[in-house]
Simulated assay, not measured.
Amino acid sequence: MPKFQIRLVQLQEDLNSSNREYAMLGRSSDLMVGTFDSTTLKHAFSATKLGSYHFGIAVRSDHPLAQLEEISFSDLAHQKVLMVPTGISEKNDLLRQQLLEKVPSIQPIDTTGRYDINTFNKAVEENIAMISLTPWKRIHPNLVTVPLKTDITVDYGLLSAKLPGKKTADFLHEFIQINHPKISQ
């Protein structure tokens, strides 16, 4: 796509939003790659799906769960588990509901919203398990991510404001035509 130039920007945190990064779309950024589901799409942005992530459990490398090949819900019995609060993500809410229904002794620890570096540091410092996703398996040098045995996945893709500017709309249109020709028909 030679007629487009991409400029990478550091997102500034919007501490008033539980969906901090998404709140920046259309303001300090035009596009981002991120997760989405029906709950997050209720906000003022659109998504072009690129794929799906799987859930895992991130733990400190000396945590007993770090030695497992795969973690089942029952492996989390009596564990504190860091997770996003309810209402931010349909898929996270569904996973939380299933976890707590099947293993009521799990102790959910809510984060302040979507994860930031402080969330990963908290998991390390307090040596507690954390719900994680495929791309974060190496996000912190002290954390090991073990796949979680669940059929729930989270879609990810290119996110933009619902009403992007002309340049962003043109980019998305061409991107879809090149990468997803069936969508544009």
Rank of each mutant, 00 (worst) to 15 (best):
D62T: 12
F171R: 03
K3I: 14
Y53N: 10
T145C: 07
K49T: 08
D170N: 15
L31N: 01
V146H: 04
E126D: 14
R20Q: 05
H140S: 05
L94S: 05
V9S: 08
Q79M: 13
E174S: 06
G165F: 01
T112E: 03
Y22G: 10
A161G: 10
Q185D: 04
A66K: 02
F55C: 02
T35I: 05
P135T: 08
E70S: 07
L82I: 15
I109M: 12
H54F: 01
I71W: 07
N92M: 10
Y53C: 05
T111P: 04
S61A: 15
A58E: 06
N118Y: 10
A129E: 02
L94Y: 09
A123P: 12
E70L: 00
A129N: 09
H54R: 14
H54N: 09
K122L: 02
Q12T: 15
A47L: 04
N19V: 11
F36E: 04
W136N: 02
G34S: 06
H180M: 02
P104F: 01
I183A: 06
E126W: 09
H63W: 13
N127F: 08
I88R: 08
T168Y: 01
Q107H: 11
V103E: 01
T112Y: 05
S52K: 04
R27N: 10
D62W: 08
Q79E: 15
H180I: 02
Y53W: 13
R114L: 08
K42N: 14
G165K: 07
Q10L: 11
R138K: 15
L82M: 11
L143S: 03
L50F: 04
V33T: 13
